[in-house]
Design a protein around this nucleic acid. Structure first.
Lengths: 350, 350
DNA sequence: TTGTAGGCGTTATCAT
DNA sequence: ATGATAACGCCTACAA
């Protein structure tokens, strides 16, 4: 310990503090209320062990001076930010944006602030967003990995520093908690619906997959093709564009009757728009079945038959995973799967 | 200045630093590379004035130890975070989420990280988001105020601390920059379209407004009713629900022919779904015209005639406003308006 | 109950 | 060119 001059130290706190060009600090409040900064801090953070009179005085001073706590200073000192970073592949995809909304809502009652960053479907942007969140010391990360392989580095990087949860999509080679829905069960529901209601000789089944580069895409495709090995199928992306492209291709090949099963609502909606534009009827000529039950699907006409993911339950599970405070010994559940439900609407009625 | 013991001070930096339980710090890197923390900082921030040999050594040490800069520490010291906070009224509204995506993209080449927070259509959540961003010392705020009146406090609060920009909606009573589109011009385009193409005696015009509690809603309604004072009109919210409700009401009143002008695409899409569900044809029986040109509008069937806001240009203007570095003397432009364009599609063809 | 003082991790200003 | 050290704003043992 370096020796220090103990003479005239009284009031050094005040002296140390200059005219605070960057806003009102605890020092200013302390000076104004004529107390120490410790007292200010105590008063503001609502600790007991204080005379009510002093607390009032401090609070009044803070009010008068317009003091706002600097959370950067607090974060540095407390080594926590009370912050959660959410990285989304694409905000324009209604499924993801609704998911972001749902997560925000799940944490709205808690002390934790949720911040969303978009990866804009780009692996570099995803990496940047994650790096930024970690550098800014978020207490937890919720990630929807863009790509099952390419996202590995960023995801495992995040998980070595903070509580990290994968949502909806998972990078299987890294052992961190995942919350999602049972895609295989969802596909089973769809197949049962088809068994019940579709004359497959009149309306043969065609599967539009979302691509094998995300786990949800792969799981859904595998599950469906497992149940229906003989089905004609195509793999693409989770986008409206791709649904349109494939529907065009199918119609161009001369087919006028089909049951289209899409791996996601956005694909199904794209397909519907093309089918209707070509003058075919849904569901009389072509049936269409989606997956996810995104909010906008009910404004499609005809309304979309789909499989609904229990969004609120899933995001609530995430909240528990984050706030549950699992110590190093008791590992949290590695896979939390929720059961989807079938929603029959006009595009493929029961 | 307090006198200090100058004996044996060498190496004090190292001694002061404990085993860094919270991750690798500059001290660890300094020790490993056998230099001072100042040198580490210089090397990492790429300053010149350094021997290449030392820089290499530092960089290697950082690499070996897995050092990641703590941006909270940096922010506290530099009094800036290189961060922008974006507050959105509702992430599930496709117009807002596309807007969030566009802003993120505008800043993707810059040093500034964009974080999005959702107000979830709640004035309290909006206040919390803004307060949090300010407490975390964001360098700028982009706000889409939820309510023209109720948001005043939070907006002006933000503007007294950081560069703040209002986007799309504006709180008129506070003098801070606003970026949006010329709503009156957009409504004029719609009226001209109606003049050109609609037989109003056969398809009388009905206006579905988005409500007067946001500036964009009020501007659009005022502008349209200014041009068409005699028109039947209703005010509600910017939501699909409300479009459905109103369309139902109009149809229930027995009308079978109309030209519906909606103040936003989401309202128009809601109306379309109800109209089609009632077996009416678009545009033969009912024409529908929207506003915004949200991404999903093209998957509506029929495709939606609307007015397009130049999103990319608008968010680019925001970027310039934020990074332009206007000093206190030269005030930035208070209102930046962009011209919308008319997009004729199937729901009301030319 | 209240005050003192140290440190969270970083950068920047000084000396050297 | 490099090193020592002082802040940045806050919280919290510990001392009084």
């Amino acid at each position: 310990m370096a020796a220090k001059d103990n003479i005239l130290e009284s009031g050094v706190d005040m002296a140390r503090h200059k005219s605070s060009p960057g806003g009102v600090t605890v020092f200013d409040v302390a000076k104004h209320a004529d107390v120490s900064i410790a007292t200010v801090s105590r008063a503001l953070s609502g600790k007991r062990n204080m005379s009510e009179e002093l607390r009032r005085r401090v609070l009044d001073s803070a009010e008068v001076l317009g003091y706002k706590v600097n959370l950067v200073g607090r974060a540095l000192r407390q080594r926590k930010t009370s912050t959660l970073g959410l990285v989304i592949p694409d905000l324009e995809n209604p499924f993801f944006s609704s998911l972001a909304q749902s997560i925000s809502r799940s944490f709205s009652e808690s002390e934790i602030d949720v911040f969303v960053a978009s990866a804009d479907n780009d692996i570099e942007q995803e990496k940047r967003a994650i790096t930024s969140f970690l550098g800014r010391q978020v207490d937890a990360c919720v990630l929807i990995p863009s790509d099952e392989i390419a996202s590995l580095e960023a995801v495992s990087f995040a998980s070595t520093y903070v509580t990290t949860i994968q949502f909806d999509r998972l990078v299987p080679s890294v052992a961190i908690p995942y919350v999602g829905c049972d895609n295989a069960a969802g596909m089973k529901l769809i197949c049962e619906h088809i068994d019940r209601t579709v004359d497959e000789s009149a309306q043969p089944v065609i599967f539009f997959g979302g691509g094998e580069s995300s786990s949800s895409g792969r799981e859904r495709s595998r599950a469906f093709l497992n149940l229906r090995p003989e089905v004609e199928h195509y793999e693409g992306r989770f986008s409206v564009d791709w649904g349109q492209t494939m529907a065009k291709q199918v119609l161009d090949s001369g087919r006028r009757r089909a049951t289209i099963v899409a791996a996601a609502d956005v694909i199904a909606l794209g397909a519907i728009s093309v089918i209707l534009a070509n003058g075919l009827r849904i569901p009389e000529d072509v049936r269409v079945i989606g997956f996810d039950d995104v909010g906008v699907s009910y404004l499609a006409h005809p309304t979309l038959t789909t499989v609904r993911q229990p969004m609120a339950e899933m995001t609530e599970a995430i909240r528990q995973l984050v706030t549950g405070g699992y110590s190093a010994s008791e590992t949290p559940p590695l896979r939390t799967l929720f059961e989807p439900t079938f929603v029959a609407r006009e595009s493929s009625p029961e």
